[in-house]
Design a protein around this nucleic acid. Structure first.
Lengths: 336, 336
DNA sequence: CGGGTGCGTTTGAACGTTAAAACGCCGGTC
DNA sequence: GACCGGCGTTTTAACGTTCAAACGCACCCG
């Protein structure tokens, strides 16, 4: 492995000149630059990142805690997110360092340690929970971070975040269903304790009101868990309570899959008799039949914004960016 | 941030003594060790990893290329794998560094670069493809790596690997179905080009023969893609070709889900009329109804072996470890 | 009592890089 | 011709750690 020293010797210049050739080429005379560049290529030189980091005290690594849900719940779009995050990081010369940590405040020593040992410059948080303690803690420790997802039920948002407008997404779904002739739209949700759920539900509710559609609470059902079974049962409840329902907006693809199953069981055809939409546009959405209309989170954009905020020179107060999801229309809400 | 120097000053010893207190405590007199330890704790000292790595030229970071499948196919168990991999790495003081790279040989410069710049010590490969060029290339460059998954269709295995015995898993499924009274077991597979598919299919075939069950090729259907639809169509083909089939072993959970759907469509009950098993025990398996019997890859063990091989002092030739998956029995193959 | 032998500790040097300051040279100005 | 300013390059020092060697001391042995 070639070092600066060896390149310098080969190009017959000082070590610092080679360093400048890489970091501040404008300082060199054209002839020198060319000579050094040639030596660099000839020796296949690559800067040693550790030495550089030691000197500059910046490691260009961003920590991300790989989530694990004990109940074996699916992260159906996590690979998309990770890929986008990596790509964005790389486009600014950075990388993602994965780690595990206990959820909640017990995990904070892990974050502190990674930062103190200089393994990472900062963190990207996700799987933000209601009253998530991490944001406040990191802010207090002056450790750079940015959150994917707002901290629900916190009066002030501690620190910068990027999030997707769940309410807007659901509203878009409702509008789409309305445009395609549906007039009685149910909502399949999660328990009230989830900020995410309340956000998305509010989008369904307000857009129904705006369009003059019913949004009474019999039309919204809260499933206790995010499973296909729960979605099917919820759908059954909705249809039993109000047989006039002609569309169902589900808060997740999994619940939507449950809805599809229940419809099939009742001899109804999804997209024809009753329209169904999901959320996240997970790989499953395009793999079922009829394919599932779903609300896609703009992963590339999310990742770009996250990295952008985290690596911006001055945090300049709390940066907050709400991105719009995209409705992907498929057979389960076929026009008609 | 405290440094060795500051701790040394506080404990009134030399810098090297503090270093020894951490890396070779047996060299210190008990009294000194205690004094130094106290100072370390008092100053909340954490070793700077960059400085350490610069000196020792080992970064304790392992590169993993986060896969991206263009067709949006699901990595339903990737989060499990990543979590296990991180946890294993951490238990030996290491971490996982994520990156993206083009598939095939065009991606190799990325691997080389990461290693040359000392961002990683070595690599864990997965998503091994038929004739995967990475293994041979890395071996040639003397870059440490270990592969999750064998390189199919390669006369000699270039480099160490850990893999799951797909044939053994499918054989276990067949035996389980035989024990619960099934006598005509179909197999739902992928195209012949996949080494993974041939491995698993061979397990079905040999175990059927051993048990005196039919395994003629009308009982095996190759789906063109890994989708629920394809699984449903494949199941229809199988049942139409041989109405006597009383069980189906699917090569993936997704195909198995397709089988479940086709059974429902035909008014058959999975687990009662026809048993179904999947592969991978993805989060979906426990979330459908009837819940899906599936073959679970031992992720924790896989990860442990991977890290173990990669960080073992001397590679000592090609290390190869074939692990046994575990059959998780659920309703879709209910006894009787 | 001189000369090993260990043990615990310190000293000196090095890992490869970059920031800051110093240097030498050239052309222009007074 | 002495002085200045700018440019391109080199020198010096430092980042925080560990390795290897040296050191001081107590102990044991002949």
């Amino acid at each position: 492995m070639a070092t600066l020293k060896q390149v310098a010797a080969h190009a017959e210049v000082s070590v610092q000149t080679v360093s400048n050739a890489l970091n501040a080429p404008h300082r060199l005379r054209a002839a020198t630059l060319q000579r050094v560049t040639r030596s660099i290529e000839l020796l296949n030189y690559r800067p040693n990142r550790n030495a550089r980091s030691l000197r500059t005290s910046a490691v260009e690594l961003i920590g991300y805690c790989v989530p694990s849900w004990p109940n074996g719940q699916a992260h159906l779009v996590m690979d998309q997110f990770l890929h986008a995050l990596c790509a964005s990081a790389e486009s600014s010369g950075r990388h993602i360092l994965l780690f595990t940590a206990p959820v909640g405040v017990e995990g904070m020593p892990v974050y502190e340690d990674l930062h103190a040992r200089r393994l990472v410059d900062g963190f990207v948080l996700s799987q933000t929970e209601t009253h998530d303690p991490r944001h406040g803690w990191l802010k207090e420790q002056l450790i750079p971070f940015v959150s994917f997802g707002r901290v629900w039920k916190e009066s002030t948002q501690p620190g910068p975040w990027v999030d997707v407008d769940g309410a807007g997404g659901c509203a878009a779904a409702v509008r789409h269903l309305h445009e395609t002739g549906r007039r009685r739209i149910g909502f399949l949700s999660w328990p009230k304790t989830s900020g995410l759920a309340e956000d998305r539900l509010s989008g369904w509710q307000t857009s129904c009101r705006e369009l003059g559609l019913p949004s009474n609470h019999e039309l919204a059902f809260r499933c206790q868990e995010d499973t296909i079974d729960a979605g099917a049962r919820g759908t059954a409840e909705l249809l039993d309570a109000d047989p006039g329902i002609d569309a169902i907006v589900a808060i997740s693809d999994i619940l939507a899959l449950g809805a599809l199953r229940e419809l099939t069981r009742r001899g109804l055809t999804a997209g024809v008799d009753i329209a169904v939409t999901g959320f996240d546009d997970s790989p499953l959405a395009s793999v079922v039949s009829p394919a599932l209309t779903s609300i896609r989170q703009p992963m590339d954009q999310i990742a770009t914004e996250l990295i952008d905020i985290l690596t911006a020179p001055a945090p300049a107060g709390s940066t907050e960016r709400l991105l719009q999801p995209e409705l992907v229309v498929r057979g389960s809400s076929a026009p008609g």
